[in-house]
Design a protein around this nucleic acid. Structure first.
Lengths: 243, 243
DNA sequence: CAGTGGTCTAGACCACGTA
DNA sequence: ACGTGGTCTAGACCACTGT
């Protein structure tokens, strides 16, 4: 019945984790089921409670379990599938498919933000911004149009950078430490500008990813990535506990 | 400048975790930086090494740190932004916006799988399948068209279910234990069928989410959710450590 | 009040990779 | 060989909560 399980587990708490996970995935322990107490499982596995706790804590973080003091630990009903969406650098994305990557700079200006810029950056007042438009290509074929705004207050060092060869996104990823990002994914009909750059018909469906990146100095950058809809797909895989 | 942080931390290991995280986000500890050893941090915080380890282990799982025996723990460079995409039940999705949810069954047949069905389910041989098409509405306005295939081998108990009121997705989420899911997100021009159901123009851009759900008994179901592109957006938020 | 999870300790031994 | 992280222990006390 049970298909398989890697015979040699590394550590005990990982074995416990995957045992519990298997019981849930297989449907043996259905949502709402009260799983054994920590002390019981510790006795079963002949280990200390801390080891069991480590496994169950992780499964709780993954959303498979719900724990309540005094009442115990319960299998949680999956209310939402939270999938991990891997959003990589476009250069890497293209090269991973084995194709030759290229990037052509279409426009690069520095200006005071317009009303639209403010809306996109989600700011009220920032100083100058740099607006960049570039086209990413795979095998010399248009792959993705990138429209980007960079807040010069947050990333003053970008003023010295020239993006004739590498895309600003690649540079930013390395140059700006760690950050928080917000993504919006939508479908949009290609505008005249987008259609021309991507060499598709005007009005054709495009997959659009908008990303706003922040760090402690404020909003760093806003980017809008438009992909020809027929060509590009985003993948998100979901497994109960990422381990 | 700094957004603000909850002043009272609950547990010590969470305080350590957020301290380290702050140092990384602020850019004080840049990618490649070797952070203090566990023993050093334990001494700094006046706690045992286990407590420090708990915090650092979690940050490593989140992808902020890289740990190597003998050499130490290092700040990892963000190579890809892996964003958590929350994919909820459509009923919940609509009701969360405060609108009235509705679902209309457009088609419900049982048949042997066609070639296309096999491709979609990713199977070679399955017995009968149930094909359901239904329209989700918000305030009686078309919100999303759901095209679904259910593998009766994996979910025989669905044969008795009738979906005149609730959507099959809602039922499946509760009835089928746990599973692994694979999502594909794409943009697509509305076909005649989709356009008619969603009451939009043919060829209009739609955001499409395709989901294949599996459990131990095999592929459970395949669903294609088409949203009018101008209306719907998927959100994915990314913060270094989901905590 | 009693029972469960949440947290923490002060040790310990092992695995692994650098030297 | 040595130093670091990875894991585990056998306790302990506390917080929460259902009875």
């Amino acid at each position: 019945m049970t298909p398989r399980k890697p015979p040699a587990q590394k550590s005990l708490h990982l074995r416990i984790l995957s045992d519990v996970q298997d019981n849930i995935i297989s449907g043996l322990w259905r949502p709402g089921f009260r799983i054994p107490f920590e002390t019981e499982m510790a006795k079963t596995y002949g280990c200390s409670r801390m080891t069991v706790n480590k496994a169950l804590t992780q499964l709780t973080r993954s959303g498979l379990l719900e724990r309540h003091r005094k009442s115990g630990t319960f299998v949680k009903a999956p209310q939402s599938l939270s999938a991990a969406l891997e959003i990589t650098d476009i250069k890497k994305e293209v090269e991973d498919t084995g194709q030759r990557y290229g990037c052509r700079l279409l426009s690069d200006t520095q200006r005071l933000p317009t009303q639209l810029d403010h809306t996109r950056l989600g700011t009220k007042r920032v100083g100058a911004i740099r607006a960049i438009i570039c086209l990413h290509t795979a095998k010399a074929v248009p792959f993705c149009l990138e429209q980007r705004l960079v807040n010069l207050d947050a990333v003053p060092e970008i003023e010295a950078e020239v993006f004739t060869k590498d895309a600003p996104g690649t540079w930013l990823l390395q140059a700006v430490p760690w950050n928080a990002a917000e993504h919006q994914i939508l479908a949009s009909a290609a505008t005249q500008e987008v259609a021309q750059a991507l060499e598709i018909a005007r009005g054709e469906a495009c997959l659009v990813v908008e990303r706003k990146t922040q760090n402690e100095r404020g909003v760093v950058t806003w980017a809008r990535l438009s992909y020809p809809g027929t060509q590009h797909r985003l993948f998100a895989r979901f497994t109960p506990a990422s381990g």
